[in-house]
């Protein structure tokens, strides 16, 4: 009896991690199956469900003309870099966006100022005076058109004397026009990788929850702990081997 007890207590120690791996190993087929299922869903989603969107990018520079004015080169650089943030807000202002929507005829139905605003992303780095403006759209042609009109309209509005946006006036110049639009989403590889990872996580979660809610005895130790009675024999599968007769 003592020998039995000692044996059990020794086994009880340090079992958790081992048990964890054991659970994973025993349920490996379920895990693989769930992972594959989620991956298939991810692939179907990526290739069938999601409408691909394209991204067109333009760039422009913010510069202050120091030759014709009396500011120094250093000050011009300083002023220009401070204007970048202003332009970033300016380009997505209602004034500019509305002018873009007015200028493009073949916008899809239900395309609003909001959807336009959401499709624009602006990036700049702090050490340069260059701004990158990209526009996403389901149609590559439209993405290019919107990007170019957005930039040119914003420059026109800023430069217009009547508007009197003095800080931005004559300070914007296009570097690159949008010429081609690249597929921006879905990122097929990433989606598949994510779906595999997600599938794995869901599968592991499922298996662990299943084990957690398993209300049947999986080991003599477990039975002993639960019942509070010594398990005096652990018999390997005998009942299972009973043959069905009659």
């Amino acid at each position: 009896m003592n020998e039995l007890n000692q044996q059990q207590f020794v086994e009880e120690e340090g079992m958790t991690l081992q048990e964890l791996f054991k659970i994973v190993w025993l349920n490996r087929f379920i895990i693989i199956l769930i992972t594959l299922w989620v991956m298939v869903l991810g692939i179907v989603y990526t290739y069938v469900v999601v409408t691909p969107t394209y991204k067109a990018e333009t760039s422009l520079i913010v510069q202050v003309d120091f030759e014709s004015s009396d500011v120094s080169e250093q000050s011009a650089l300083y002023i220009a870099s401070n204007l970048i943030a202003t332009y970033e807000e300016f380009v997505v202002s209602n004034l500019v966006l509305n002018s873009v929507i007015d200028d493009i005829d073949n916008l899809p139905e239900g395309y609003t100022k909001n959807s336009l605003q959401n499709s624009i992303s602006i990036s700049s780095s702090s050490s340069t005076l260059i701004l990158y403006i990209s526009v996403e759209n389901e149609s590559p042609e439209l993405a290019i058109e919107i990007a170019n009109i957005l930039v040119s309209n914003s420059i026109d509005i800023a430069d217009d004397d009547e508007n009197g946006y003095l800080f931005l006036q004559d300070k914007l110049k296009v570097i690159d026009q949008a010429e081609e639009a690249n597929l921006s989403s879905p990122n097929k590889m990433l989606n598949i990788v994510i779906s595999v990872l997600l599938g794995g996580i869901i599968a592991l979660g499922f298996v662990f929850v299943k084990e957690l809610f398993n209300n049947k005895y999986q080991s003599a130790t477990e039975m002993e702990k639960h019942l509070g009675v010594k398990v005096i024999a652990a018999v390997p599968g005998t009942i299972k081997e009973r043959k069905l007769v009659e």
Partner: peptide, 8 residues
């Protein structure tokens, strides 16, 4: 005591 039978 208890007996755990049919252990896989």
């Amino acid at each position: 005591g208890a007996v755990l039978a049919n252990i896989d």
